[in-house]
């Protein structure tokens, strides 16, 4: 394994292959719990813990798990880590645990985690799987915090509970309600798509109507 590969394993999840912003996985928690930065941190850290723990374990046991039952085995491993995270959060930060409600337990079915097991940890060494999980975990936290910051600042006028715009700010309540989650995510994905298109080499920048024109010419 070269140095460049290890770096790439770690860094790809942060931006280039960000699980939320590029792969659009894990939409359920991304939309549901991102109405305050506090919630985002707790959800992000819990998912990070589950992802890293499961990836390391799945990768170290990958030769022992028969192919036929691999998904079942992954789910058992993931569910165990989620239950542990759930209990620890309940004991340590009961208020946040109450706010996140069912979404902690639903980390079990977060497709980011299962996707990393199936696509990466099941085929790679423990060290590479660890780096991949750390990168993807941080990528998820970054995406959640971006969403949370936008929604909490606009929808509540606060950041981590501290007032940002002063007492005269009228909060955009819709931003902390479910539609605000869709708006924020939509605009973020739009911005990222526009940005990556600008960065893409020329041939990829062909506009849809250029393609139509060419096709029409070909038909003619």
């Amino acid at each position: 394994m070269t140095h460049a590969t290890a770096r790439d394993d770690l860094l790809k999840g942060l931006w280039k292959d960000n699980p939320v912003l590029v792969q659009t996985l894990g939409m359920c928690p991304t939309l549901a719990i991102t109405n305050s930065v506090e919630n985002g941190i707790a959800m992000g850290v819990a998912t990070f813990f589950v992802l890293v723990g499961s990836s390391v374990l799945v990768s170290s046991l990958r030769k022992l798990i028969p192919n036929e039952i691999r998904i079942t085995a992954y789910i058992v491993i993931i569910a165990t880590f989620v239950t542990v995270a759930d209990m620890v959060l309940q004991a340590v930060v009961p208020v946040i645990h109450k706010q996140l409600g069912a979404f902690i337990a639903l980390i079990v079915v977060n497709c980011i985690i299962l996707a990393r097991q199936e696509a990466f940890a099941a085929k790679n060494t423990v060290w590479r799987s660890f780096l991949d999980a750390v990168g993807m975990g941080f990528g998820f936290i970054i995406a959640l915090l971006l969403m949370c910051a936008i929604r909490e600042v606009l929808g509540n006028g606060t950041f981590l509970g501290h007032s940002v715009f002063g007492p005269n700010y009228e909060p955009w309540v819709i931003m902390v309600l479910p539609p605000g989650g869709f708006f924020t995510l939509g605009f973020m994905l739009l911005a990222i798509a526009a940005w990556s298109r600008r960065k893409a080499p020329r041939p990829l920048r062909a506009r849809p109507h250029d393609v139509t024109l060419q096709t029409q010419k070909a038909v003619v």
Partner: peptide
């Protein structure tokens, strides 16, 4: 295999 996994979990 699954039994061992379940028991440890």
């Amino acid at each position: 295999t699954l039994s061992v996994f379940g028991a440890v979990a």
